[in-house]
Computed example of a mutant assay.
Amino acid sequence: MSETENQGAISIAPYRYALAVEYNGSAYRGWQKQSDDDVPSLQSEVERALSRVANHPVQVVCAGRTDAGVHATWQIIHFDSCVERDLRAWVLGTNTYLPDDISIQWARSVTHEFHARFSARARRYRYLIYSSPVKPALLSRGVTWTHKSFDLESMQRAAESLVGEHDFTSYRAVGCQAKSPVRTIQSLEVTQRGRLIMIDVRANAFLHHMVRNIAGVLMKIGSGEASIGWAREVLEARDRRMGGVTAPPFGLYFVDVDYPDLFDLPVSPLGPYFLSGAD
């Protein structure tokens, strides 16, 4: 069943809720529910828990599907329900049925005009790189470790060539199913806090592996293995084979979704939580 058909199937329910989900994606094959029930997915876990609170089957729609091993601090979902529950029940009740690596952060009652995916105006990811001669034991699946050192100025200058509306064919996975490779990057910044390097990117939407491919190119430039101009050369080639290595998923976090003010949803604190207070 397609997402559009799925929406039509459940839209008769009178109540619609929006929720924020935080998760560690290390143990899952990505957000999307798989045809094989034995394959762990985040969507399946969330739907199973919500269905127990609702006491009827629940199907959810997310703002942006994340790949296997990718994390989120602000994944937004919506679902329709035949029953009205206190918002605390949707949060606390659902969390009692979720594994420790998934947590509902808040719930809001919304109109049927709200759609987690189609109402979104922008999405934001953060990619975290731990640069150290020795691998970390803590957060070993929460950051991407490298023994290499990076020139952040070179990375930032290269990143600037990717800002704006472009054809990102070279920066998407070969198997990406998006109809168009054109996306608009609104901001792309590279910063450092101690040994932690953060690539922060905001765009209207993302292609499959787009952020990880950008991170891979910028890391190669930062380490001195490629010139600053290589990021633009890859972009203009419109050929994934020119794009180098896809960076690992471990350091990638989905941290924000921008919606029109009329929906009055909470503002993201821009995680992950161990960066709180650093902005």
Results as ranks from 00 to 15, higher is better:
Ser2Arg: 05
Gln7Phe: 04
Ala9Phe: 01
Ile12Thr: 09
Arg16Pro: 01
Val21Leu: 03
Gly25Glu: 02
Arg29Thr: 03
Lys33Arg: 15
Asp36Gly: 09
Asp37Ser: 15
Ala49Met: 10
Leu50Thr: 14
Leu50His: 14
Asn55Gly: 05
Asn55Glu: 14
His56Ser: 05
Gln59Phe: 01
Val61Pro: 01
Arg65Asp: 14
Gly69Cys: 08
His71Trp: 06
Gln75His: 13
Phe79Lys: 04
Asp80Gly: 07
Asp80Ser: 04
Arg85Ala: 13
Arg85Val: 13
Arg88Cys: 04
Arg88Pro: 00
Arg88Phe: 08
Ala89Leu: 09
Trp90Val: 11
Val91Thr: 11
Thr94Asp: 06
Thr94Cys: 07
Asp100Cys: 10
Asp100Asn: 09
Ser103Tyr: 09
Gln105Trp: 00
Trp106Thr: 02
Ser109Tyr: 03
His112Asp: 02
Glu113Leu: 03
Arg117His: 05
Arg121Met: 12
Arg124Ser: 06
Tyr127Asn: 12
Leu128Tyr: 09
Ile129His: 05
Ser131Ala: 14
Ser132Glu: 10
Val134Met: 11
Val134Gln: 10
Lys135Ile: 06
Leu138Pro: 02
Leu138Glu: 02
Thr144Ile: 05
Thr146Gln: 11
Lys148Asn: 11
Glu160Gly: 09
Glu165Met: 10
Thr169Ile: 04
Ser170Cys: 10
Gly175Asn: 14
Gly175Ser: 09
Ala178Pro: 00
Thr184Gln: 02
Ile185Glu: 07
Glu189Cys: 05
Gln192Pro: 04
Arg195Lys: 13
Leu196Trp: 09
Met198Asp: 11
Arg202Met: 13
Asn204Leu: 07
Phe206Leu: 15
His208Met: 15
Gly224Lys: 03
Ala231Thr: 15
Ala231Met: 15
Arg232His: 15
Leu235Asp: 14
Arg240Ala: 14
Arg241His: 11
Val245Thr: 14
Val245His: 11
Thr246Val: 11
Thr246Gln: 13
Ala247Leu: 06
Phe254Trp: 02
Val255Thr: 08
Asp256Val: 01
Val257Gly: 00
Tyr259Phe: 03
Leu262His: 00
Ser268Phe: 02
Ser268Lys: 01
Gly271Leu: 08
Gly271Glu: 06
Phe274Met: 08
Leu275Tyr: 06
Leu275Asp: 05
Ser276Trp: 07
